[in-house]
Amino acid sequence: MLEFKNVSYIYPKGYRALTNINLYIEKGEFVFLVGPVGAGKTTILKLIYREITPTVGKIFFENQDLAMLSHHQVPYYRRRLGIVFQDFKLLNYKTVWHNVSYPLEVTLVPMKDIVKRVFKVLKLVGLVDKRDFYPDELSGGEQQQVAIARAIVNNPSLFIADEPTGNLDVKSTDKIMEIITEINKMGTTVIMSTHNLEIVKKFNKRTIYIQNGMIVEDTKNEIIDTLIERNSYDTNLIQP
C-alpha cells in the first residue's frame, strides 16, 4: 500500500532529516514509528500526507508516485487519509459536531450523508452526547477523540497519527489507543508515531525505530524490551 524507496529529505535550510529510508507497509497493517525527538518521525508523516516531497527517492501510495501529484491533485489524495496530531488542531469556534462534519462539508458531501456519517463516528469514539460541546469544554482526551472522529469520518484507507497520546494522561491514552485499534480492525491501515514505548510494548505491532533520520529497527516489538533495557539508541528517548 505504501512504499518508501531510498527516501532522503533535507529541509530548505539545509537540515538533513531523513537518510535513505526504505519501507513497505501493507494494507490493513498497524505500524508504530518510534524514536527520540528530532529523529525524523514527523518528517516521514509529512512526506506521507504530501506536505513535503522527498529530496531524493520516491514514495508510492497504492502504486501512485506522490511526488507526481499536481498541486490540484493533493486535496483529492488527502481525502483518502485521516490525520491526527498531538495538538488536536480543532476549530474552537465550532462544536464537536461541526468539527467532525467539517471534512465532509469542505469536500461537498450531501447533508443527509454528513448526518449519517458524523453520527456513526461520534458513536465509535463515544462522543454522541457531547456533540454540541465546544472543544474548550472537553478534556484533552475527549478533544483527541474529536480529532480522531474528524480524521475517520471520510472513511480513509490510511490513518496517520502524529504523537496522538503525547499530551494525554494514562486513562485517556488507553481510550485513544482502544479507538485507534478499533479503526485498524475495521481495515484501515494505521501509522502512528510515538515516543511512548509502553504503548508500543502493550500493543505488539510492527515497530519502526528511527534515529538520526535513519531506520535502525523494523520489527515486531519483541525487541522493545531489549531497546528499553539497552536504551542504546538514544538517551533522549522519553519513557513513560
Binding site: Y49, H72, R78, R79, L91, Y102, V106, T107
Partner: peptide, 8 residues
C-alpha cells in the same frame, strides 16, 4: 485544517 482534510 482545510488543507489537511482535503479541501480543494
Amino acid at each position: 485544517i482545510m488543507n489537511l482534510v482535503g479541501a480543494s
